[in-house]
Simulated assay, not measured.
Amino acid sequence: MSSAATRERGPGGWRQTGAVIDPNLVHGALELARTDRGLLPHRLPTWARAQTDDPQLHLVEAQPAGVRLALRTTATRIELDVLPTKRRYPGTPPRPDGWYDVLVGGELVERLQAPGGNVLDVEMMTGASTFTAGEPTTLTISLPGGEQDVEVWLPHDEQTELVDLRADGPVEPLPSDRPRWLHHGSSISHGSMATHPTETWPAVAARLAGLDLVNLGLGGSALLDPFVARTIRDTPADLISVKLGINLVNQDLLRRRALGPAVHGWLDTIRDGHPETPIRLISSIHCAIHEATPGPSSPDMAALAEGRLAFVAAGDPASVASGSLTLEVVREVLAEVVERRGDPHLSYVDGLGLYGAVDAERLPLPDNLHPDSATHRLIGERFAALGDW
């Protein structure tokens, strides 16, 4: 077996020349940190991470939503060593192991899980955590042979260190000639409650539209942080979309007076680096608990007592008159921002067109906040169907 990321062809075949996976095999990450085990994908750069001490953001940006290994090979067998970090939340149902989706020529051929690894015990209300170190797992991937383009999508909601990759044939990085789509949003864009990494709605939309996805969906953290806008500004992209609303409401972060100027400032920053790049500003999908009721969101204690995780809106609808945000208010403000800017390369997408109240009757949000895989697929299909930007 040859170590694909660290070997070059010599007179006697493939030989090792390094110690870690070739970073050029990794697509969809903005930064790869070298650890004592291998490479850890990050979706925000070091300088941006240094501007916040929010444990939630640091947790989710290191979960590799949209990150995949992309390679061209004639191998029939690949071994990928990974070190996942599993999360546990006391008092809530256990989380299943993440999935690794293997695609050959764009078609799904295998799904694998990596048991074991590190464990992070997280206190849901405070964000405090305890870390227990574990050991890597080897995933074995069988391939048909012949020259083939292979992608291995990493678990979208499980931090994953890439330790080593070995193959019984030559491996080289797979270039992309597709337009690069940079998307930012909340946990829904991150892929929360989708079972597989290729089932998140941005992954579905990217596949259908023929786009090269960079997913900056950050669970609980689509909060108009300036360092995220600067990250988008500095990242090459052919298309950009930003989905805002639910985190601003369910964290009760802003009032109406602040929202419009904050969104204008965000778009100004992005435009500094992308003066004519098409941008879609997307509002929230339907979420009954926060359509007309402000945040914050809180765990539904009755559901927890039944062994289920669900959420309720804890805000007072009467406070909307004094500026509290609901999803209805945020949609109105976002539409106004787009209209006022008069930017021919900026468009508004109403999230209710991606998933509305009628859809919720057929495909309810299981925990009152996040869509399941079937609903992710619906949202992705509808977004891709919007066509040219």
Rank of each mutant, 00 (worst) to 15 (best):
G145N: 08
A128Y: 06
P296H: 10
R72E: 14
H156N: 10
I240P: 07
G98M: 05
G145P: 01
L59A: 11
N250L: 10
R308H: 11
G146S: 04
V263Y: 00
S189A: 11
A114H: 03
A302H: 12
S189P: 03
E276G: 03
P94I: 14
R308G: 02
G105P: 08
H264G: 13
R9D: 14
E61F: 01
P371L: 05
A222S: 14
P84Y: 10
R271S: 02
P23Y: 13
R377H: 06
L71N: 07
V358G: 11
S324K: 03
H58K: 13
P41M: 06
L386E: 00
M1C: 11
R15T: 13
A360S: 09
H190N: 06
P144K: 08
R341Q: 01
G10L: 12
P278R: 04
T140H: 04
L174K: 03
A321H: 12
V20H: 06
T293F: 01
L363Y: 12
S322D: 15
R257Y: 11
T293G: 04
A65H: 15
L120Y: 05
A262D: 10
L165I: 15
S297T: 08
N250D: 09
D36N: 06
T293W: 00
P317L: 12
V349R: 02
P144D: 05
N250P: 05
H190W: 02
G265W: 10
A203R: 01
A302N: 15
E79K: 13
